[in-house]
Simulated assay, not measured.
Amino acid sequence: MDMLDFLDLSHNQLSGKIPTSLAEIHTLGFLDLSNNNLSGKIPTGTQLQSFNASAYADNDGLCGDPLPKCPGDSLRPSTNNPRENMNENDDNNLSLMQEVAISIGFGFIFGFWGVVGSFLLKKSWRTAFFNLLDAAGDWVYVRIAVFVSKCKRG
């Protein structure tokens, strides 16, 4: 059964849980277990969760992805309404973006005003900083002037 690609077991009055050995068929491209009496949780972490919910339709005791969550799965969102789940994810992304914006705002406030505030309060720091900028500007000017004069000779 390792090479099985198509499996239709619909309308067969099957009951019980889905065998985990079914999840070991990695070549399975189509699965239909609808209209049976299957129950329990669809094996997690398998390709069985990648099939549409219609593959498991009319199995009242069946739960887990891609069907509604099982009673013990309070941490996982329900997948019976993908549009509703997208809205929940959008809300999460929006709050993440708000958190990033707030973090950037606080970073700017503390970073910018930490530097500017120290220059406003300490004249010696302000003088030393602008002397450093002056010296750096002079150094760049001299380097450019030497480079240009070498190019003219060359």
Results as ranks from 00 to 15, higher is better:
1 M>K: 05
2 D>G: 15
2 D>Q: 13
6 F>E: 09
10 S>T: 01
11 H>P: 04
11 H>I: 07
11 H>D: 14
12 N>R: 06
12 N>G: 04
13 Q>S: 11
15 S>W: 02
19 P>H: 10
20 T>D: 15
23 A>I: 04
23 A>M: 03
25 I>S: 04
26 H>I: 14
26 H>G: 13
28 L>Y: 00
29 G>T: 05
31 L>T: 00
32 D>F: 06
34 S>Q: 04
37 N>Y: 08
39 S>A: 09
42 I>P: 01
44 T>I: 14
45 G>T: 11
45 G>K: 07
49 Q>S: 15
50 S>Q: 14
51 F>Q: 00
51 F>G: 01
52 N>R: 13
56 Y>H: 03
56 Y>W: 04
56 Y>V: 03
57 A>G: 05
60 D>V: 07
61 G>K: 00
61 G>V: 01
63 C>F: 05
64 G>N: 06
65 D>Q: 15
66 P>Y: 03
67 L>W: 00
69 K>I: 10
69 K>Q: 15
71 P>C: 03
73 D>H: 00
73 D>M: 03
74 S>E: 14
78 S>M: 06
79 T>V: 04
82 P>Y: 04
84 E>R: 07
85 N>A: 13
88 E>S: 10
89 N>I: 13
90 D>P: 00
92 N>G: 11
100 V>S: 07
100 V>P: 00
101 A>W: 00
101 A>N: 02
103 S>A: 13
103 S>W: 08
104 I>G: 05
106 F>K: 09
107 G>M: 06
107 G>P: 03
108 F>K: 04
108 F>V: 11
109 I>W: 09
110 F>S: 07
112 F>I: 09
115 V>W: 12
117 G>R: 02
119 F>W: 10
119 F>M: 12
119 F>G: 04
120 L>P: 00
122 K>H: 14
123 K>N: 07
126 R>F: 12
126 R>A: 12
127 T>C: 08
127 T>L: 10
129 F>Q: 02
129 F>Y: 10
132 L>S: 09
133 L>D: 10
133 L>P: 00
134 D>S: 15
141 Y>M: 14
141 Y>T: 15
143 R>M: 15
144 I>M: 10
144 I>G: 06
146 V>F: 06
147 F>W: 13
147 F>S: 15
148 V>D: 07
150 K>A: 09
151 C>Y: 10
151 C>I: 12
154 G>D: 14
154 G>M: 10
